[in-house]
Structure formats: C-alpha cells, structure tokens
Write a protein that binds this DNA or RNA. Sequence first.
RNA 1: GCCGAAGUGGUGGAAUGGUAGACACGAGGGACUUAAAAUCCCUUGCCCAUUGCGGGCGUGCGGGUUCAAGUCCCGCCUUCGGUACCA
Length: 920
Amino acid sequence: MEYNFKEIEKKWHEIWNESKAYKTEIDNSKPKFYVLDMFPYPSGAGLHVGHPLGYIASDIYARYKRQKGFNVLHPMGYDAFGLPAEQYAIQTGQHPAVTTNANAARYREQLDKIGFSFDWSREFKTCDPDYYKWTQWTFIQLFNHYYNKKEEKAEKIEKLISQFEKSGTENVTAAETKPLTFTAAEWNSKTEDEKQEILLNYRLAYIAETWVNWCPKLGCVLANDEVVNGLSVRGGFPVERKLMKQWILRVSAYAERLLRGLDTLEWSDSLKEIQRNWIGRSEGAFIRFNIENKEETLDIFTTRPDTIFGVSFMVLCPEHALIEKITTADRKTEVENYVTWARNRSETERQADVKKVSGVFTGAYAVNPFTGERVPIWVAEYVLAGYGTGGIMAVPAHDSRDYAFAKHFQLPIREVIAGGDIEKEAFETKDGTVINSDFINGLTVKEAGKMIIEKVKEKGIGYGTVNYRLRDAIFSRQRYWGEPFPVYYKNGYPYMLDEQELPLLLPEVDKFLPTETGEPPLARAANWKTKEGYPLETCTMPGFAGSSGYYLRYMDPHNDKEYFSKEANQYWQDVDLYVGGAEHATGHLIYSRFWNKFLFDIGLACKEEPFKKLINQGMIQGRSNFVYRIVGTNKFVSLGLKNEYETQPIHVDVNIVSNDILDIEAFKNWRPEFADAEFILEDGKYVCGWEVEKMSKSKYNVQNPDDLVEKYGADTLRMYEMFLGPIELAKPWDTNGIEGVFRFIKKFWRLYHDAQNNFAVTDDAPTKEELKILHKTIKKIEEDNEKFSFNTAVSCFMIATNELTELKCRKRAILEPLAVLLSAYAPHIAEELWHLSGHTDSVLTANFPIFNPEYLVENSFTYPISFNGKVRFQKEFPADMSPKEIEAAVLADENAARWLDGKTPKKVIVVPKKIVNVVI
RNA sequence: GCCGAAGUGGUGGAAUGGUAGACACGAGGGACUUAAAAUCCCUUGCCCAUUGCGGGCGUGCGGGUUCAAGUCCCGCCUUCGGUACCA
C-alpha cells in the first residue's frame, strides 16, 4: 500500500475516538504526570499555524511520558468569557454564548485534525455554569478570609472578628488597605454597617473606591490602552478619571510568597525575572514627618533612609488626602487647579510626558525629624498614589527625579553621599560614604540606613519595612460576558450569597450595552435581586477569573459537590509541565499562583505552587510576501530588478507564492485589479520579496493549519512545526521547508515497505551496525525529549531513516522500536505501521525502547590530530588504547614528523574520544 | 533609563571548551521518464588553486584567558521581549 495519510489519519481518528484511547483515570499503580497547555480563547478567526506549536510540543511530551510508564493527564478546554464575543454580541444582538459555542466547536474540529492526545472527556469552558459555580465559590471564600502576615497564610475572617472583639487591633497582623487602630470597646460599640466597612479593609476580596477611566458617553470603564489623548478609542468620546467602587483581590498580601515561590519553580530565568520585577520587592523604611503648625503628620516610604539629611522638600501625589488639609489659603487656587488637572490625566498621558516636570507648592512645611529644619511640601504628578504612602521625602542630590524637580523649581540640592558631581546630575549609587550628615558621617550607605531605621524606631516615628510594587487586582468589569458576582447589597454593604444558591446564572438581557443611566449591562436584567429583594451586584468578573483555577478543575471536572475531590487532588497534585506564551507572565501566571496559594491555605489544594515546570513557546510570526508595482502602472517587477524602477511594495497572499516564486495566474485571479497586470521577470520567474511581520489577515500571511493538513497530513505538520527551531524561540512561519519533512515521512513509510509497496518487515536478526543506529537514536530521542529539544530530535529521525534506507534494513527488531519512538511526533503513521507489523494494541501504550549502551561501544576511534590547536591529520586507534600509548603512537607517525619539523613537542594533550593536540 | 534574551551560510537552524555550519530548505548539475510528478546521485560558507592534492579567511565589533573559544572573561554595537516617574 502506498502512504496515504488522508486515509490513515481519518481511520485512526475514528478508532481513537471510539476506543476513548486518551481517557485518563486515577491509577494508583502508576506515577502521575500532568501536562497542560494554556487553554485558548476561541476567537472567530479560528486557529492559525502559531497556535498548535505549543500544543504539539506538549502532546509529544505527554505521549513520551505515557510510554515511559506514567499515567498522564492531558486535558483541554476553553477560556470562553471575554471581550470579543461581547463586542460581536453588541453589534449583532446575537448572544455571546452562541458565538462562543460555535467558535469552540470550530477549534475542536481543527485541533482534532492534528491528532492530539487530549482527554476530551474532561473538557469544559469557563462560561459553563457547572464550572463558573466554582469560580464564584472561590470568590466567596476570598471574601470570607483575610491574610495573617505573621502566620503567612489566609485565615477565616471570623478569627479576625473575635480578635477585634477581645482586643481590638492590638497584635493584629493582617494585611490591610490602610492601617486602622481601635480598641475592643470601640469595635463592640460599632454598628453592623460600620463593622462591615472596617472588615473590607482586611478581606482578601474587598470593595473599594479606585480611580478609573470613565467614559460617560459609553457608560463604561475603559482600560488604559482604550484611551488616547483623553478620548475613547471607540467613538472618540471624552474620558475622565473617576472614583468608582470596584471589587479588588488583595493579591499584594501574597507578594512575599509569590516572590519566594519562584525559587522552587523550573521556569525560565527570564520569566522568573519578569515576575520578580513585577512584584518589585524593595527594602526601606516608613518615616513620619511632623507638619509645622498642624496636627496632621506626613508618612513617607523611602529606600534610602541614609539620605535623610539631604532632604530639601517633600512631595505628595495629586490624589493625597492631606493636600486639602495643609494647603495654605494663599496657595489654595493654584493647588486645586493643579490637582484637578493632574487627576484627569489618564495614565497613558502621564507616561507620555514623563520628562516634563510639573508641580505646585502647598505653602505648608514639614519638619525634618533629625535636623528640625522646615521642608516645603509640594504636590507633583511624579509621585504615584498607588505605591508606598503616596508621599515622599525628596533628596535631589541622590535621586534623578527629585534632582530634575529641584532644578526646575530651584530648590536646594544638598550632597550627603560622597563621590558624585551633583552640579551635573544626581548621584544615585548605593555604595558610598555618608557626609554632611551629623552622627552618620563616615558610615557606608548600608550602615547609615540601618542606623537611621534604629533611630526612627527609638523616636517612635517609623520602622524598617519592605514594600512591593505588586498592586491588588481590580476584579470588577462593567460588562455582560463574564461571571456574575455572588454578591448582594444591604444598606450599600456587600454580602455573599449562600453556597447553595450557586451558580448564580448570568441573566438574560435585552441588550448587551450599559443602561441609559450608565449602569453595567446586568442592570438591564429583570429581577436582578435576591429572593428577599436585595439588589445583586451588576458587574461581572474579569477574564482572568475563570483561568485562575481551571487546572485544578481538570482533575475532577464533573464533580457537582466540590471544586474537585480530595482524592483527585491528592493523586494529580499539580501541573508537572505547563506550556504557553510568555505574554501571560504578569497576568494569568501571577493570578493563578495567587489563587492556588489561597486554595492551599484553606486546605483545598495540596500543593502551594500550581505549575512546577513551565515552557514558553515562542511566538510564531508571519512571513509576508511582497510584489513590487512600478509606480503609476499596473506593471510588477521581480525582486532582483526592482531597484531599477520606482516601485511600491504590495502584500501578496502567501498562499499563491511558493519558495518566493509568484504563481502569476493565481495572482491575476486573486483580485480583479490585477487581472490584466504585466510582469517583468527574472529568468522567466517572478521573485517576491519577504519580511517578517505579525501574522494577520491584512498582511495576507496567515497560514491555516487545515490547509497544510489537507496537503501534507497531520504528521508532517506536527513534525515540521517542531523542526522549525527551538520551541522557546520566536520564529517566522515559513512553509518553504515543509517539503523536506514530508519527504522524510514518506521515506520512513518506505522503510517498512518493499519496492512493490507491500509491508515487508522481516524477522531477520539485526546486525551490529543496525543496532548501533537504533540505540544511538533511542539515546538521542530520549535526551531531546527530556530537554524539549524537539527540532534536533526530528533531525535525528531523519538521519536514522537515511542510514537504515542505505542499509536496506527492514528488520522488525529495528523498525518496531523506531516506530514507537516516532509515535510521539507522528502518531498516525506510527500507529499504522505498528498495526501492520501485527500488533493489536495501540502504540500509545507501548513501552519506550530501552537504551543499551553496549551497542554504542566502539572498537576503534579516529582522533583528529592537531598541532598548536590546528587540526592537521587524522589517525585511528583502538578504543581501549591508553592516552600514553596514543601519545607515543602520534609522535611516531610519519605525518607528525612533517609538522614537528625536527622540534621536540613541549606537551601532548590527549582528550579521550575527542582530540590529540601536540604543542610545539 | 532599567531588567532579560539573542546575534553563526542565500534561508530555518546544529555544535558537554576539542575537526564550526549537523539536519533541512533553496540553488546548480546529473540519472530515470515521451513528458510531468515522484524517487535517487553529485556540488553548494567565502577567497585563491582546481589536471591530483592543497592553502588562506571565517560564528556582530575590539581586547583577553587557554595547547584549543561560536562556547569562558572584560569593554562596545545591533536586534527582539519585559518594564517604566515604584521614592
């Protein structure tokens, strides 16, 4: 039979499907292995060749691990809530669930064609009520817990309440929004509403006012990149900054654990570094400054307490609550104008002119606790509300931003660290000696910092502390297509629904737009309230809600009593291998880790970190082709001649270009305006130019995997995607090379067949040489699989196939193990050959061949002989010859005499099995 | 600006400090064929020599360590990611 991939692939898809070949169940007799892909958002455009790259890699690894005796969990599903479906719904009126389901079905169809070993019985979408019930459930748990910083774990809010009842805030070590102090008596005399208000300061899911980009015309909160120059991208309506009540997750409470946990993970260093920077741990001190003639005090955070003698002004962020209280009457108008202006600037706008210095003096003065000096308090945009206390002590001599500000407003610059030239620029080094600073003079920066922290502690005006850049995550979206919050309001305070009332289903609405009064779409739902008549929350959860814990649900996806059973979690534990893009480094991969740590704290998840090993597959870029039209004509000139004319490059569909040669007929039919195009050719061909760009429809460089499967088969596509290059590298998609892999697959097929195309594997005993080829291959494939070096593994298969073809080896003892090795990469052809060879079970359950080093033992070895590092000739020696003997034999060689030229060598270096170098 | 990664033929890319360019594409030449497809063989980093050998130069740039450097060290350049008034 000839190699007919269409028949073979179709046949095996049906058989695998019917026999549920990839269904996985708990099996305590085998070690578990959990291989997971970042599940896709099913967009309307379908898959392009970039999407399956990671899935193929993880599939190869999953199949490999199965053959190594592991019970492999390899599930797939869809991240289905999100903006595109909602926007499509707004335009067409079609319910987002309808488009989402249609898109998911199309994804499934495309994925199935590639032959993945997913256990589809575990599939779910994040928008399935059976699933989002547990997203809502987890939210309730977050609301009902706070973070105990001393114990470093989440604890029940009841514990905090009983502490308040007994001793107020004394000895409370809870992560909080702002520091509060009250006694037990004070707490006990508070009303229910007041207590609820206070508890929001501690809950892990809390509601609070935050600044958002509000577009009154759209009735909608916009993300930063949806706002340009103060106008909405969609519609161009004015956008203002507004304080709005939003749900927030106290991710920052876990900052330290998120940071420390990184050390236990097998992730790439660069990805860990991105997360470390994002968490942004910095050590420093909180210091309290008194304000002249005021009761209020000004708290600041600094990483440089050692420079406190260099403070020449203080700066507050425009949002700071103190501004109103301390601004003097004569400065009031100016300060108010500045604050209003600054507050209404979007973050993007602020970022756009970071270099521009702006600010205003409040008229008030703080008092330096060490010198007693009056220090003017300013307000400026460059101090951010979300970090530290929103106020700083400015030391212009040793901070470039303070320096720019001081120069601009002609404030004093006082040098307190020796070694810089503060006339020119700020001297920001952290190794230096302190000067002009009273009792810390002569100390190093480090020592001085410690000393100041001790002193402020003594004075009771501050303490050493650690601050993080990581912000709490805003969890409310004024949208329709997301999980509804299991929340209702009483007297304006939020309360959670009972667990029995979950899932709280997404209600039907007449339109997916905000209401006329600017409320979110859920406010349109009839009867959006509890049985008792309390109003329900109208916001929905953001995209990352559903993806934060989906990997846990795959362990036990149909459980209607729990998120997942203890038994399933004990068995599957955590994800051993997670494959996905690095673009999730500061989003999903932080939120998931937070989510998992919380579930670990409350005793649900048995592992603290969800993803043990992570591989980031590189982005697949597009490779666009261009034709060059001579300006003002409909004449196109081939690439090599284009410089002789004035031309304009035009994107041309890559599907009508092969090896950069344009299919002229197809081009004429491509678009009507090219029907009568003329061409200036090179050697009778039209050569196109090319460029690497993002893969997109408008650039006509999208490759659809379906087309390639149709033309070459899934096995070829799978192997070619791996052959392209290292999995982690970003690389352009170039279909040109796929023929080479296709040839290999056909050649591999012929290895098992005779000239008449009959299956012709024999039971003859293999030769030493053939065994050597096999075992060399087993060794290399195993190593490459473990290293995720799938591109070199494909090359290794090609070499082995070429060598065995050369030897006309058609022996079962060689070819069967080879088919097993290949089955992870090209499952269809391997399965077919396996069955032709007489097996009735699936190659999926075959054991990975065992490498035997004895077959690789050499009886002689050819050494390159170099003189002063330059290789001059080669010589063969028995493999068991000692280095000393080799040395003697080399020097006795007649070739050596020529290079030695009568001199005695200074030294001879013999590197066993590598090289002999003679130093003259 | 800061952090991270990477620079190797016409192209994608191989090389535990040990013969750089495996493997593949493309290109050129040839075999088979009426022809095409498919398949197979040879050449293919650059320069000189080419009737046989052969020789020189080559991994972004400049230094260094070493018998030996694409690989290690120092100083640059370029590209790509992340981040950006984080005190």
